[in-house]
Measured scan of single mutants.
Amino acid sequence: CHSECLGNCSQPDDPTKCVACRNFYLDGRCVETCPPPYYHFQDWRCVNFSFCQDLHHKCKNSRRQGCHQYVIHNNKCIPECPSGYTMNSSNLLCTPCLGPCPKVCHLLEGEKTIDSVTSAQELRGCTVINGSLIINIRGGNNLAAELEANLGLIEEISGYLKIRRSYALVSLSFFRKLRLIRGETLEIGNYSFYALDNQNLRQLWDWSKHNLTITQGKLFFHYNPKLCLSEIHKMEEVSGTKGRQERNDIALKTNGDQASCENELLKFSYIRTSFDKILLRWEPYWPPDFRDLLGFMLFYKEAPYQNVTEFDGQDACGSNSWTVVDIDPPLRSNDPKSQNHPGWLMRGLKPWTQYAIFVKTLVTFSDERRTYGAKSDIIYVQTDATNPSVPLDPISVSNSSSQIILKWKPPSDPNGNITHYLVFWERQAEDSELFELDYCLKGLKLPSRTWSPPFESEDSQKHNQSEYEDSAGECCSCPKTDSQILKELEESSFRKTFEDYLHNVVFVPRKT
């Protein structure tokens, strides 16, 4: 048989008469490798580009789960590009990614509803959504962080984005990388972005840091009482949809009607710091009717980097990364020049730590249904340095008659930039024990000054392991946590139920 035959053949030295091919099969003959313009397919066939392209389009058009959109890589027609490569849609070739590779997620039936953290986790790592997304989240724990972890990498949506009755959302900033909504599939009414009845939605994105392009379709905003109209108009300008909307697409009466839409800028007039305090004062603000001013709200939190936005980490279910302080308005003076500047002394802060701070007014709604208010920009203030805590785990070892090696770990709280350490030492008198000992005694162990690591005695271990207080009263049991108490109650309830079950099964009433 021919060298490319495997198993047997019907005619000697003829690659077209093989029972099976050793390498690849091409047009009725066995070959060692697939010549151009053919590609290896499933490690035994040679196919042309049209064959591989037909497989790709067949799966793409069917949208069946589990099928493969075949691509070409290293002269092979394979189910998908290997790690580190992405497909070129024009020629199906796998090309190296520039940075992290995109991950295209194809949605069944063309859309997916995100109504819980669990459903959001199914899209973790996706960068391109081939379909439409509907966000409908009523509640949950730590929602802002969970949504950002699972949806934060999405850069492109081919269909539309719909935010509907998501009472738990305060902001859409968890879509931190969303840059493009194509609108290839539109919501009824030709809408590519749809926001309806979101009672706590206050911000779409921080438009000073976020760009969003909507290729096709219109915007729809109705019944978002805490979303200011200025935020919607800003989205029109940034996304390129200005002029597409009709009169009733953006409701003037049901958007922002319960919001404090600040239209003035508060400026800080005085800032002073110490290692654990920050004193702030800002310019006074009074609405047209000074009785509408209820006070100020001061927001602050630790910020290692200057990239904080107002609604980071917030949701309507209680999660809030900001510390909020309510401040009463100052006494009002008739003389504008003698107006008191409101302020606040922030206490209990960490030394040498940068804080993000902003302040906003708290006002009631005027009778004319106009909203007044003022808010400052987010500023960054760093507390002063102070003395560091003591170095940890000092170790001293003498390696000769004239040297001592000293080692330690950095302090747990540096409280500033540590530039150097101060080492103090003092000579001590020799131990009298060394002169009084009889060095001729056998088995004498000389006193040693070398360091030995501390260890816990058996008594201390027994005390720590004991669940009861000892007789001397030195140790006591740790208080039980809520989960331990709940577990004990469940076990007790189970024992009672099981005992009742045994009584009912074992003891049967005697027939009379």
Rank of each mutant, 00 (worst) to 15 (best):
L172Y: 02
D276A: 13
A251P: 13
R369H: 06
V324K: 02
L266W: 01
V104Y: 06
I379D: 05
E246I: 04
N150A: 04
T241I: 06
I154L: 10
Y194G: 07
I134K: 02
A120P: 02
I357V: 11
D335V: 13
Y194Q: 06
F221L: 09
N387T: 13
F174G: 03
H222S: 11
T118Q: 01
R176S: 09
N399C: 03
K112T: 14
Y372V: 03
K103P: 10
Y300M: 13
T386F: 01
D292M: 12
P284K: 15
S401P: 12
F311V: 03
D115P: 06
C126S: 01
N150P: 15
V170I: 14
G243T: 13
L392R: 11
K301C: 01
D292F: 05
D326K: 00
G159L: 00
S269W: 14
A251N: 12
S401F: 04
L362E: 05
Q258Y: 09
V128W: 14
T118A: 02
L229D: 12
Y223S: 10
A144G: 06
I114H: 01
E310T: 02
D335N: 12
R347V: 09
I395Q: 03
A195L: 10
G343R: 11
E283K: 12
Q339C: 07
P342D: 07
L265C: 12
R138V: 04
R281A: 10
S171H: 14
K103M: 06
L143R: 07
I114W: 01
I379Q: 09
E262G: 06
L345G: 06
K301W: 04
D115E: 15
R370P: 12
Y300D: 00
E368W: 09
R247S: 08
R291F: 02
Y191C: 09
G125W: 13
L279T: 01
R291H: 01
H341V: 07
Q258M: 07
N224K: 00
D289C: 02
K162E: 05
E237D: 11
Y160I: 11
G295R: 01
L252R: 12
D367R: 05
K253I: 14
V170M: 09
V238E: 07
T383C: 12
E184L: 11
L252D: 05
T118K: 09
I214A: 05
Y167M: 15
W352Q: 04
D393Q: 15
G217W: 02
L349F: 02
D328N: 11
C228N: 01
R347C: 09
I181M: 05
S208W: 13
Q354W: 11
Q382I: 03
H233P: 04
R332Q: 06
D292C: 06
Q403F: 11
G373A: 08
G343P: 11
W344F: 13
W205A: 08
I157D: 00
W352M: 08
E246D: 09
F311S: 13
F275A: 03
S173C: 11
D292A: 07
F193I: 10
L266T: 06
A385L: 04
L392T: 05
Y160C: 13
L345R: 04
P342T: 07
P394W: 08
E264R: 07
E302Y: 10
P288N: 07
G125K: 08
T309R: 11
T309S: 13
G131Q: 01
Q306H: 15
K337Y: 08
E187K: 06
A251R: 06
K409N: 14
Y191A: 12
P342Y: 06
K267E: 02
S338C: 15
R347Q: 10
C228R: 01
E184V: 07
T273G: 08
N136T: 12
W282C: 15
L362P: 01
H233N: 02
T371Q: 12
T371P: 08
C228Q: 02
S274P: 00
K407H: 07
V381C: 15
I135F: 11
N334T: 11
W352D: 14
E148T: 05
S119C: 09
A316M: 09
P304F: 08
D292I: 04
I379E: 11
Y355L: 03
L123D: 00
E187T: 04
S389T: 04
A120Y: 09
N340P: 08
T241V: 14
I271A: 12
I157V: 05
I114N: 01
R176L: 14
T386Y: 08
L279E: 10
N263D: 03
F358M: 07
D257R: 13
Y194F: 11
T241R: 09
N248C: 03
V104T: 04
W322K: 00
I327C: 14
D249S: 13
T361K: 02
L212Q: 03
I395S: 06
L212W: 11
L178K: 00
P388T: 00
G131W: 00
E264N: 04
I134T: 03
G152Q: 15
L196V: 14
K301A: 04
S333Y: 08
L349K: 02
F299C: 02
A149K: 10
D328E: 15
K112N: 10
K234A: 14
T118V: 05
W282E: 00
S400G: 06
N141G: 11
Q245L: 09
I357F: 15
P351W: 05
G159E: 00
Q339E: 15
A195M: 10
A120V: 06
T273M: 10
S269K: 12
P351D: 01
D257V: 09
S119R: 09
A385V: 11
F296N: 02
L349E: 00
W322N: 03
K350N: 12
A168V: 11
L266G: 01
S166P: 03
N320S: 07
V128N: 01
W282M: 10
S166Y: 03
I135V: 04
P342M: 10
D292V: 02
P410L: 07
R291Y: 02
S116P: 02
L331P: 07
R247D: 07
D257C: 03
N387Y: 08
R165E: 01
C228F: 02
T361Y: 14
N150C: 07
L180T: 12
E264W: 01
S401T: 10
L123S: 01
C105K: 04
K409E: 04
T383L: 03
K226T: 10
L143W: 15
F311I: 08
P394F: 02
N255Y: 05
T386G: 04
V128Y: 14
I378P: 04
R202K: 06
S274Y: 11
P342H: 05
L201W: 01
T118S: 04
S173P: 03
A145W: 08
K162V: 10
G240P: 03
E109W: 15
S402V: 03
T127V: 07
N263Y: 05
E231L: 06
A120S: 11
E264T: 06
E109Q: 06
S116G: 07
C126I: 02
S389L: 03
G373M: 05
L186R: 09
G183F: 06
G189E: 12
E148L: 12
V128R: 12
V104R: 02
S260K: 03
D206A: 14
N263T: 10
V128C: 09
N334I: 15
Y305I: 11
Q354A: 14
R347F: 06
T241C: 02
C228S: 03
P394L: 10
I114D: 00
A195Q: 06
S239F: 09
A251G: 11
E148V: 14
P336R: 14
C261R: 03
I137R: 00
E283N: 14
L204S: 06
D249Q: 12
